[in-house]
Design a protein around this nucleic acid. Structure first.
Lengths: 332, 332
DNA sequence: ATGAAAGCGCTAACAC
DNA sequence: GTGTTAGCGCTTTCAT
């Protein structure tokens, strides 16, 4: 058995071996119906025998598109983005596209680079919760490449946007807390460049109107940071801690438990997003459910429209829902 | 301001506008030193002015490589793979490569398709915990494309392999449990086609030697499945439940808590992998720490070697370590 | 140091 | 219904 290496077999090899022309092979490959069934069958068999696979780069160059849609996320470790990705992937698969994912690991600089790269490699790009500065986003938008932004509103940007009512969600959390009788709360703040975080802060401020006063501690977006930051909260005399997201809340919850601080008896804790783990924590985490599958689907559909040239850039907003569980109760 | 659409600017446009030849622009682009500094500067300026970006497909076709390494994982939602990915990405970035990730969502059939696709689009492929049948893996290997397998050992396959001592890890769990005095344990089994699961089962059987008897319940790999399956365990009179991975354990833990079954007083629970959440659970989860960053790094290095043609296929194994936390204790 | 030109493997007119 | 051929945008000899 000769295990011939090097040069991959090309469409020309298939043509020669099957006695058909290159174009006929191409037709068979692309399912063009105008090929004689017998010939088509012969070609197909040859393809199988030779184990031929069309070269992706060549196809991409000739067709003028890659068949790929690119997604940029700030943190692949966050289930929030998986659920979006999953929904998006289903749509993509349906359209014969594959999804190229890149993770900027919460680095705004890296993000711009990656996005630029993503544009070069795909027919359309979805920017999930982009952290990059407005100016970078603007430059990217100007490339005229099909592009959709999710989880962030950027005024004046000519890009289709899928946004989430983070403000309303956080307001609901505050109302819930205020209703329980809480007055002093501390907010474990998320990434600085996160629009979602800004919106939450805005809601927190608005919530002062119904008697809530809050202080902010810079934290982050991971369970680790929640765990690390939790002790700091204790000295502040707050009866509740509101977290940027579920990860942070779960981390804080764990630390409180370690420290013997009982939740929710001694302190209430809230999250945001309603990831699966929020339900499995003990106590269950009060949080805000974000319809991530819907987000993914809407993003995919918008992107599809942009790619086929139809559809004007708009801003779609999805609603959220407060999810009350065991981690919140009236203050002691 | 004329916002001209359509045709993206090409290397030809840059050449014309800068008064240099196409080859010179190409040289500047690729950092070939033999270009007059003045000319090079002029070209660079033109590139910036025109906002030119080389076409990825064309570069790929001309160079014969894509600059991409592909990674296939069975479940993007599992932190196990993130940590591998993160380590791999660092290496890739260093070599000027980007990482293309695909998620087979635990579907062995889909997996083969995706892998095939990945091969077409990348210079090298990493198969993480592949679930596909031996024959498919074999067919894939025969393509002669640089490829590395992680988390699974397939005898006779000519592929470089990075494996984990799952067997030893599970044996350590059993020894720990036996040492505490447990005799009857139930195993929440993972995906059928998972080699890691097979290895764990093998260890469980071996553990009968030191007095442990176990029964198996098909479960899965997610917190959801652990949560759903947990009640079934209760009727079996076991004093400990050993889980396929941390997700399952965490789900089971949550369900026990919901049911008022105290862990570890009434039943001990163990996980596998030592994901971040294992530490933040309450009680903390006894589990087996797998060095995922090392796995990612070794995989990347092996892949790099394969891609540059050096390095024979070998099998490297990485060790694991039992991590004892609060979820295990002597039986009641 | 620079330019001309031959591919890279495929698609899509365009002829027959 | 099938084959011929001109690109797609870039890299890379090969001259000069």
């Amino acid at each position: 058995m000769t295990t011939s290496r090097r040069r991959r077999t090309t469409i020309g090899d298939v043509a020669r071996a099957s006695g058909a022309s290159i174009s006929t092979v191409s037709r068979v490959l692309n399912g063009v119906a105008t090929v004689d069934p017998t010939l088509a069958e012969r070609v197909r068999r040859t393809i199988a025998e030779l184990g031929y696979r069309p070269n992706a780069a060549a196809q991409g160059l000739a067709r003028g598109r890659s068949g790929t849609i690119g997604v940029l996320v700030p943190d692949l470790a966050n289930p929030y983005f998986h659920d979006m990705l999953k929904a998006l992937s289903v749509l993509a698969r349906t359209n014969g596209q594959r999804v190229l994912v890149m993770d900027s690991v919460e680095d705004p600089y890296e993000e711009r680079e990656l996005a630029e790269d993503l544009v070069r490699h795909s027919d359309g790009v979805l920017l999930c919760s982009p952290r990059m500065p407005h100016s970078d986003l603007d430059a990217l938008a100007r490339r005229g490449h099909p592009m959709v932004v999710a989880n962030r509103v950027v005024p004046g940007l000519g890009l289709h946007t899928i946004t989430v009512d983070f403000y309303g969600g956080m307001l609901a959390v505050c109302a819930h807390l205020a209703g329980l009788g809480h007055r002093e709360v501390v907010y474990l703040s998320g990434p600085e460049s996160s629009w979602a975080n800004t919106e939450r802060l805005r809601a927190l401020e608005a919530a002062e109107e119904f008697g809530l006063s809050f202080s902010t501690i810079p934290c982050g977006s991971t369970a680790e940071s929640g765990y690390e930051t939790a002790p700091t909260v204790l000295g502040l005399g707050a009866s509740a801690v509101v977290s940027y997201n579920d990860f942070v809340a779960l981390g804080a919850l764990a630390r409180f438990t370690d420290l013997g601080v009982r939740v929710p008896e001694e302190i209430s804790v809230t999250g945001f997003d309603d990831i699966a783990m929020a339900r499995y924590a003990s106590p269950g985490l009060t949080t805000v459910a974000v319809p991530r599958d819907l987000l993914g689907r809407l993003s995919g559909e918008a992107l599809a429209r942009q790619m086929q040239g139809s559809g004007e850039p708009e801003t779609e907003a999805v609603a959220v829902e407060l999810q009350v569980r065991g981690s919140t109760a009236p203050p002691a």
